[in-house]
Amino acid sequence: MALTLFIDGAAGTTGLEIAERLAGRYEFTLIVLDEAERKDTAARRDALNAADIAILCLPDDAAREAVQLIDPAQGTRVIDASSAHRTAPGWTYGFPELVGRDTVAAARRLSNPGCYPTGFLALIAPLVRCGLLPADWPYTVNAVSGYSGGGKALIARFQAEPELAFRTYGLDLAHKHRAEMKLHAALAHHVIFAPSVVRAFRGMLVEVPLHLGAMPGGVTADRLRSALHDCYAGSPVVRVHTDSHLAELTLAENAVGTDGMELFVFGNKGGWHARLVARLDNLGKGAAGAAIQSLNLMAGLPEETGLRL
């Protein structure tokens, strides 16, 4: 029997991407509200409580409100694509490769990871967990993303201002992603997070530079790469590149969407300096693709079903 889904916020960027991935899927039946009902609280409440699984593609405050509209007795399971519950007690973090596929499959309340934290955590969390990198190191994250990650307002700005090629932000050093990165990598300190947006619709590069020679343990770039390769062995979504001699990594202005993620480890001669880089689609593994991956597991399906890999 098909599971019933409701996407609250289906008209937003992430909601549309999720709906595209669900098109033609026989395992799910969508509850769809018409234009007049989309912002009607009573209609949304009915839809949320009628669904087996609700996917929230809303601003943070609206996502919290939506959760309050759900009657616990109805048993609706939730995937929240906002940042409202990424560090909240009682919520499962929707990163199967890190928290475990069985944990995601059993979740009642699941929070979709942020796009930038997805790249950072994929690189750092396993290496801290296995003891190759220290939890008390002051990590720095440099990242660039396509402008679709900023939602409709930023998309409109980039499309209306052809001279706008690069935008850096988070200059107050207090970006909300920092708490998510610290918690789920089990770090002692907040990271220094330097996010930017470039003139590409989708895609992102997330980089963590490391001065390995200043760290205890004598770890090299080769050991980090090998450990990541072992961590993600067999994953249909995450690929760790073994080639450490690439001349460059690029983002294309009109790239085709993907739900996979690539990880790279580059080191200097001797391996004492390293650059760890994740390349992913901010609308794929960074948003809609991650939600579908978790949805598949919650529905008892192979995690890669319907993904663009």
Rank of each mutant, 00 (worst) to 15 (best):
T220K: 03
G218F: 04
H229A: 15
H211S: 15
V104W: 09
I18P: 03
A227G: 03
R129D: 03
P162R: 15
H273R: 12
S111A: 15
A10H: 07
E262V: 04
S82C: 10
I155Y: 02
E27K: 08
A125Y: 08
L16H: 01
E65K: 09
G213E: 00
A73N: 05
H211L: 12
D71F: 10
D172R: 12
T118I: 02
G151W: 05
P138R: 13
A36K: 15
V144R: 07
H85F: 11
F193H: 03
P236M: 10
H85V: 04
F264I: 03
I55A: 07
L228W: 07
H175F: 09
H273W: 08
A54W: 01
A194M: 07
D102R: 04
E253L: 03
G15R: 03
F266I: 01
V206M: 06
Y26K: 10
L154A: 09
D230M: 03
T13G: 02
A153I: 09
S111Y: 01
V197W: 04
F28N: 04
G149S: 07
L249T: 13
R25I: 01
D52R: 06
A50M: 05
A156E: 13
E35P: 11
R199I: 06
G306C: 07
F28V: 11
A143G: 03
G15H: 06
D40Y: 07
H241D: 15
L121T: 12
K182M: 15
Y147K: 06
A278Q: 09
L212C: 06
R21W: 01
L297D: 06
G100M: 13
G289R: 01
A247E: 14
H177C: 10
D52A: 10
T92M: 08
Q68P: 00
P117T: 05
R225V: 01
I292D: 00
E207D: 10
H273K: 10
R157A: 14
Y232I: 13
A88S: 09
E163H: 13
T242S: 13
V265K: 04
H211C: 08
E253Q: 13
A188P: 01
L224Q: 00
V198D: 02
R86C: 07
H189E: 13
T242C: 06
S82W: 09
V240M: 15
G213V: 01
G218E: 06
A227N: 04
W91V: 00
A188Y: 00
M1Y: 08
T92S: 11
A47Q: 06
F95S: 08
A135K: 13
L164Q: 14
K39I: 09
E207R: 14
R223V: 08
L276K: 12
A160I: 08
H184F: 15
Q293K: 02
D259Q: 01
G203M: 08
L5M: 02
W137S: 13
Y169D: 10
A214I: 00
D61L: 14
